[in-house]
Design a protein around this nucleic acid. Structure first.
Lengths: 157, 157
DNA sequence: CACTTGCGTTCTATTATGCAACTCACTATG
DNA sequence: CATAGTGAGTTGCATAATAGAACGCAAGTG
């Protein structure tokens, strides 16, 4: 059976997953953020098989997350670089990393991230764009936007 | 062949993906945040097949993201509810949703999220835990923590 | 007692994945 | 100049994962 696509779902989470939800995709993006650009470097670092890597890179390029930048003419070779759309995945990657740091890093966080502007080792905190207060799940309420099926939100008991 | 596990990787992103990186998992978590608790509700809302849903729910319960709460004795039936560990996935879900809103929501964001405290329709913004400034990828630098392989970060050209 | 609900299991056809070997176009080495 | 090495895929094959449907099964309901 075909794997069911999320593309038709009226949900932005599903749309995001359609692009980076496949096995390996997010780790490819992670390495791209760390500065990896070459096929073989991705392959060695991830331990992914070459055919799968090839497929994922193509998918990410088609999705506009990565872009091919030629670095050699005669054997035609490309770097894979993040686009702006790809760089905008940083919040997703960061929140995932921090969740992993908290719940699945027995010997402490593998990476230490420094905020260049203030020089401190930093964690990214989510705040409200309007009032600047720290926000968590319990602090917000979701409603369907006009033009979208209200069924997106189930009836509470 | 077995799908390669990310569990051994010394990377918190990989650890997070090991738990919620499978196809459907994150959408199950999304629905749990929206208040869905019953097997059949998940199944109907997601259009997922029952065997896969069963597997995903079990995985998420084993991982401590969901917990079973009995609501019926005689036909033994459980609600699936988010644990604290599960609720801490909210930042991941939120950043994913916002990315999807920006890049894959032709008719606008399906959901409108309100910050209860200030009453405004809000977007979650990432700020530095130390100085409170807005942070993006370019604003930070990553280094390996002591006790972790420096190879995590590739050499820059 | 025939339905329906809720949840899980089993079965099967179709994909996806991982691995290894192979191609192709150059580059470096002896 | 022959040979080996590198970078970037492609191809073939065995195995696991997925979707979909059918089946089980225990309470309730009419």
């Amino acid at each position: 059976m075909d794997r069911k696509s999320f593309a038709r779902m009226d949900c932005s989470v599903a749309q995001c997953l359609e692009v980076v939800g496949e096995w390996w995709s997010m780790l490819v993006v992670r390495d791209a953020f760390l500065g990896v650009t070459r096929f073989d470097d991705f392959q060695r670092r991830l331990g992914i098989s070459r055919n799968i890597l090839n497929e994922r890179l193509n998918t990410l390029v088609e999705a506009g997350v990565l872009i091919r930048v030629p670095y050699s003419e005669h054997p035609p070779r490309d770097d894979y670089r993040l686009t702006d759309k790809g760089r905008d995945l940083w919040p997703v990657l960061t929140t995932m990393r921090q969740w992993g740091d908290r719940y699945a890093a027995p010997s402490g966080p593998p990476l230490r991230v420094t905020h260049k502007a203030c020089g401190a080792v930093t964690e990214a905190v989510l705040v409200c764009s309007s009032c600047g207060e720290h926000i968590r799940a319990r602090d917000v309420e979701a409603a369907t936007s006009p033009g979208h099926a209200p069924a997106l939100i189930p009836q509470r008991a």
